[in-house]
C-alpha cells in the first residue's frame, strides 16, 4: 500500500511537472534578434554624440584616455582613418579582444544603441593623423633580449616576474609603452604590484603581489618563487607604488634603441605574428 501511495505521489509529481513544462513553454520569450546595421545609425546626431560622450567618459576613458587618444588602451581617434569600419569597431566593443584588458560589453548592460552612441562621439574627436611607425624590429628584438626578457615572456620564452608580452602590441599603444619604459606611465597591472615583506627572522623579501586576504599574502619573489606568507608571521609588509621594473631613461636606452624596441613590441600581436 505504501508503494501504491508513493507511485501515486510520483505520478502526481510528474503530472505537475509536465503541467509546469507546458505553462513555461507557452511563456517563452521570443528571440530578440534584430539585424545590425553596418553603418552607425547615430553618426552626427547631436543627442547621440552628447550621450555617447558621457558613456565614453564612464566606460572607456579609464583605458583609452579622456580624449580617446590612448592611455593603457590604444588611440581610437585614428581607427577609421586607418581603414577601420563601423562594423569592425562595433564587433570589438561587443566581443572584446582576447588576451587584453578589452572586455566584451555584456548585452544585458550595454545596449546596441549605447555602443553606436559612443562611436558617434568618438567620430567627432580630432583624429591623430595616421603615421606609419618606423624602427628596426630586428634590433628591437635584440634590445628586448638584452634588457627585458629576464622578466617578460614572449611566446613562451623569458621570465615571468612581469606580464607576458606576447600580445602587447594589440593591448597597448606605442605611446603607452614608451611612457612605461621612460617611467612617465606609473600604471601597474593587477597581480604585479611590488611588495616588500620582512619575516620575524629578519629576512627581507621583495616581489610582486599575486593575491591577498585579511590574514595572508601570496607573492612571486624576485627569483620567481611563488610563496604565501601569514601576516601574523611578518614584522613588516608594504605594498609599494614604484614598479619593480626599472626606468629606462636615455642613459640606459637611447632614443634609437627605444624606437626599435617599440617597433618590435608593436608587432607582438599573438603567437603566430611574433618574431622568434
Amino acid at each position: 500500500m505504501r508503494r501504491t501511495a508513493s507511485v501515486v505521489a510520483v505520478f502526481t509529481i510528474i503530472a505537475l511537472g509536465v503541467g509546469a513544462e507546458i505553462a513555461l513553454a507557452q511563456d517563452r520569450a521570443p528571440a530578440r534578434a534584430e539585424p545590425r546595421p553596418t553603418k552607425n545609425p547615430f553618426e552626427g546626431k547631436p543627442d547621440a554624440v552628447s550621450n555617447g560622450g558621457a558613456m565614453f567618459r564612464t566606460r572607456c576613458a579609464g583605458c583609452h584616455g579622456p580624449d580617446a587618444h590612448g592611455y593603457l588602451g590604444p588611440d581610437l581617434t585614428g581607427f577609421w582613418g586607418a581603414g577601420g569600419t563601423d562594423d569592425r569597431m562595433f564587433d570589438i566593443v561587443r566581443k572584446g579582444i582576447p588576451g587584453t584588458e578589452m572586455i566584451a560589453a555584456d548585452p544585458a548592460r550595454v545596449l546596441d544603441r549605447d555602443i553606436w552612441q559612443v562611436m558617434a562621439y568618438i567620430r567627432t574627436l580630432n583624429a591623430v593623423p595616421v603615421t606609419v611607425p618606423t624602427g628596426d624590429a630586428t634590433n628591437g628584438a635584440q634590445v628586448f633580449r638584452n634588457n627585458c626578457s629576464s622578466c617578460h615572456m614572449v611566446n613562451a620564452r623569458g621570465g615571468q616576474l612581469g606580464p607576458d608580452l606576447s600580445r602587447i602590441g594589440a593591448a597597448r599603444p606605442r605611446a603607452g609603452l614608451q611612457g612605461k619604459l621612460r617611467g612617465t606611465n606609473t600604471f601597474i597591472r593587477p597581480g604585479y604590484e611590488p611588495v616588500t615583506l620582512v619575516t620575524k627572522s629578519g629576512e627581507r623579501i621583495r616581489g610582486v603581489r599575486k593575491n591577498e586576504d585579511e590574514f595572508s599574502i601570496q607573492i612571486m619573489d624576485m627569483r620567481e618563487r611563488l610563496q604565501g606568507y601569514l601576516k601574523d608571521n611578518l614584522t613588516e609588509f608594504r605594498v609599494e607604488k614604484q614598479s619593480v621594473m626599472p626606468v629606462y631613461g636615455p642613459d640606459r636606452l637611447n632614443d634609437r634603441d627605444l624606437n626599435d624596441l617599440l617597433q618590435y613590441l608593436a608587432g607582438l600581436r599573438g603567437a603566430d605574428s611574433a618574431s622568434r
Binding site: E21, L24, D27, A29, P30, A31, A108
Partner: peptide, 10 residues
C-alpha cells in the same frame, strides 16, 4: 526550475 530564455536580471 526550467527557466525560459531571455531572462532579464541586472
Amino acid at each position: 526550475r526550467d527557466l525560459p530564455s531571455g531572462l532579464i536580471a541586472c
